[in-house]
Every structure is written in structure tokens, then in C-alpha cells.
């Protein structure tokens, strides 16, 4: 009951501060404190959004970005979970992959961009490759740690019933790792979207990142803002979707910890 109230209170406060910022934004521009050239204004962004929507531009760019996003996330999920399972189960695989993980953690992925341009050319393949690399690390790392940190008590209990390594992998380690793997996917979703938008900023013919960069170069702040807001909303929706799935797969673990 109190938890429910606290949750509602958080929601109300969050909404209020959002509305407050929008109001402030509109006010400082309307009152002439800040030139709309730099920040546009909420009402103008909304009107421009409707105009872009009617012309069908938004659908084109959103679907272009989502396509690259889906390809990158699909690849990162397949490769990340695949390698993570192998590395979590076989110590030698983990050791062999370790240096690459450290490179990935330490070096900015975007530094590889020119290389990908050279290999794959401008456009979707390079964008997907960059976003793939963005998303890969958390998916791999979470899968690895889930399998590696399998509960020893459960393994022992399984062994006492004659479980073979194969059984322990599929009946104990894998189901026990689902929540942490899904948590890795949630992180991967946010990073894949970032990767797509960043790569689109650098070179693309369509997409949200492309639109932001395009209107920025034309100094059309309002149109640029429309696409920035769309990226934010898209990110929130995708991440929330994964949080929802995470909560469902995590039910047994959260409650057990109470």
C-alpha cells in the first residue's frame, strides 16, 4: 500500500518536473530570453512534428532506423549470447576472448568507424556493424557471468540425482541465467539504438540520426528537435519493453531475495 503510494508519488513528481521543464522552455523563448534559433520551442516542435508526420517523413526515418536497429540487435544477441554461453561454460574460451572484451571496454567503439567505411562502404552495413559492436558487450558480459556464477548448491543437488554436465548446463545454469541475460539485453537495446543514431549522423541516406544531422547542417533547429525527441521516445519505449520482460523472467529471483 505504502509502496504503491510511493510509486504513484514518484510518477506524479516525475510528470510535474517534465511539464515544468517544457513550460520553462516555452516561457524563456516566448519572453525573449533565449533566441529560438538555438533551442526552438515546444509548441513549434509539436507543430513541426505534425507537419512531418503528414508528409510521411517520420515513418520513413523511424522505420529506416528501426531496421538497422533490429539487424544490429539480432546479430549482437546471437553472437553475444552464443559466445557468452561458451565462455561461461569453458574457462579456456573465456581466457581467449578476454583481451577483446578489454579492448571493447577501454576503446571507444566509434573509433572503428572509418575502418568499417573502408570495408563496408557508406550506409546500412556500416551502421549495423557499429551498432552491433555497441550492443555486443553487455549482452556477452551478462551471459558469461550468469553461466559462470551458477549457484553451486543447485549444481550439487543436480549432481546428486545423477545430472551430467549436459544436464547441468541446460537444466540448471541456463534457466538460472535467464534473468541476468535479459538484463544484458535491456542494456544492449539502449546501446544498439545509440550506435545506430551515432552511425547515421556520420553517413546515411535516411534514418533518425541522418535527419538530425541533416537539419542541423541546414540550421533548422525545430526540425532537428523533432527527430531528437523521436529518438528519446523510441529509446524509452524499447527500454521499457525490455524492463517489462525482465520483470517477468525475474519473478522467482526478486521474490526469493526478499
Amino acid at each position: 500500500m505504502i509502496a504503491a503510494l510511493a510509486k504513484r508519488q514518484a510518477l506524479i513528481l516525475g510528470t510535474l518536473s517534465m511539464v515544468g521543464i517544457l513550460g520553462l522552455w516555452q516561457a524563456v523563448v516566448d519572453l525573449g530570453f533565449i533566441d529560438p534559433f538555438f533551442v526552438s520551442r515546444p509548441s513549434a516542435v509539436w507543430n513541426e512534428f505534425l507537419a512531418q508526420w503528414r508528409r510521411g517523413n517520420i515513418l520513413i526515418h523511424v522505420s529506416e532506423t528501426l531496421r538497422s536497429f533490429a539487424l544490429a540487435l539480432g546479430l549482437a544477441t546471437t553472437v553475444g549470447i552464443g559466445l557468452g554461453l561458451l565462455a561461461g561454460w569453458f574457462r579456456d574460451v573465456e581466457s581467449a576472448l578476454d583481451p577483446f572484451v578489454w579492448f571493447k571496454y577501454s576503446a571507444p567503439t566509434i573509433a572503428f568507424y572509418p575502418l568499417f567505411i573502408a570495408w563496408l562502404g557508406y550506409g546500412t552495413p556500416t551502421i549495423v556493424a557499429i551498432a552491433f559492436l555497441f550492443a555486443l558487450t553487455p549482452i556477452y558480459a551478462n551471459t558469461l557471468s550468469g553461466i559462470k556464477n551458477v549457484d553451486r548448491d543447485l549444481v550439487r543437488a543436480a549432481r546428486s540425482f545423477g545430472a551430467r554436465p549436459y544436464d547441468i548446463f541446460f537444466m540448471v545454469a541456463l534457466p538460472g541465467s535467464v534473468p541476468i541475460i535479459v538484463a544484458g539485453l535491456r542494456l544492449g537495446v539502449g546501446r544498439a539504438l545509440t550506435g545506430v543514431v551515432v552511425a547515421e549522423l556520420f553517413g546515411a541516406n535516411a534514418g533518425l540520426g541522418y535527419s538530425i544531422g541533416y537539419f542541423a547542417q541546414l540550421l533548422q533547429t525545430t526540425r532537428m528537435m523533432v527527430y531528437i525527441v523521436i529518438v528519446i521516445i523510441l529509446g524509452v519505449i524499447l527500454t521499457q519493453l525490455l524492463s517489462f520482460i525482465e520483470a517477468r523472467t525475474d519473478a522467482w529471483r526478486v521474490s526469493a531475495a526478499k
Binding site: D153, R156, S160, P175, G176
Partner: peptide, 11 residues
């Protein structure tokens, strides 16, 4: 073997 309670598969 009957272990202590933590040995059930929680899922």
C-alpha cells in the same frame, strides 16, 4: 540426498 532448503530450483 535431502539438502538444506536452498537446493530447490527456484524457477
Amino acid at each position: 540426498v535431502v539438502f538444506q532448503e536452498a537446493s530447490l530450483l527456484p524457477w
